[in-house]
Design a protein around this nucleic acid. Structure first.
Lengths: 176, 176
DNA sequence: CGCTCATATGCAACTTGATTCATATCATGA
DNA sequence: TCATGATATGAATCAAGTTGCATATGAGCG
């Protein structure tokens, strides 16, 4: 249910095309909400049908046409109403923890190997987040309200990744 | 896809009924994988049909009949095969972060109120985890392999909740 | 006697997300 | 010339999770 609001929020910030939004939801916004292009296009079509977004088709020389979406007054209202509601925290569902739970069927080296793979991903992720932090949020005090909040979302990504890395160290120590 | 393996693992540990499993997946196992009773009963029926579980109906005096499930050889094999595969990390999808992203539509006090609600949940959760840690895992070195791994899953729950609380403090400091 | 609560099980409809397939333009390089 | 990759869009199908509804037993309470 949140994809639509994530799209509305992103488009509220900058009117964009499905293609550009897809890229954001797989890169810069992946620590907030991720979605593939099929999902994005489907939801954009729905939102437009419901009048929460408006479309303009743009012809480009040398490239296929594209549709740029902008948020409507109804869209802003819907987004505002959703944001005001207190949402329940999402349930935890993590295959890696299920594996630990089924753990006496796996050998420790095997588990360690999987963990090393993930650890590598987390390290890279953390480096990316830290780069963004240094590049765009070096001085949080000077940020506008909007970007200060986006910075907090990034901080969440950083703290989360750090906590996975710390946990990986604990696991390694126990399995060794 | 992991629900079935979480069920197999839980039943491998102790043969149980759908009712008991549902309770575990909403309480003691909620930090690993959560599921409601409809999901549990549906999946148990499938697993039995596929021969990964066997059933025994037990009559009880004064209470409805219940079905106790046990894992079969095929079930153990399927679980083992799944555990060996390296799984991709699940994508992040958090409505709370979407709200921050849409943040200039919310007032800070409103966001703080929501955060305080969640913070309360996290505190209680952390207390529960710590109680389990003290009660069952006081001396990790003496645990069997199986319970040592379950302890690591619990540790993940603890680190995760702590990192949310730390983040909540950061948010509070910025919004104040 | 009817009410609610805990135990115990399940179906059906719906929504969301993942996967597979499809189409079209143009630039670049082999 | 042909293949590849980036841009740009979407339908169709499948799997997983959510929500609503349904049923049955017995205990305890007013």
């Amino acid at each position: 249910m949140s994809l639509r609001y994530a799209l509305l929020a992103a488009i509220d910030e900058t009117p964009s095309t499905g293609y550009a939004l897809t890229r954001r939801f797989n890169e810069g916004l992946a620590h907030v909400w991720s979605a593939n292009h099929q999902q994005v296009y489907r939801e954009l079509a729905r939102l437009e049908k419901e009048g929460l977004l408006s479309v303009t088709v743009e012809s480009q020389a040398g490239k296929p046409d594209r549709k740029r979406y902008a948020i409507t007054a109804a869209g802003i209202e819907a987004l505002g109403a959703w944001v005001e509601q207190i949402a329940a925290r999402p349930a935890t569902r993590d295959p890696l923890l299920v594996k630990l739970f089924a753990g006496d069927l796996v050998s420790s080296p095997r588990l360690c190997a999987e963990l090393d793979t993930h650890r590598q991903t987390w390290r890279e992720q953390l480096a990316t987040y830290r780069a963004i932090e240094a590049r765009y949020f070096a001085d949080p005090d000077t940020l506008s309200h909007r970007y200060r909040l986006q910075y907090l979302a990034l901080r969440r990504g950083i703290l989360n990744t750090e906590s996975w890395l710390a946990w990986a160290d604990e696991v390694r120590a126990v399995l060794a």
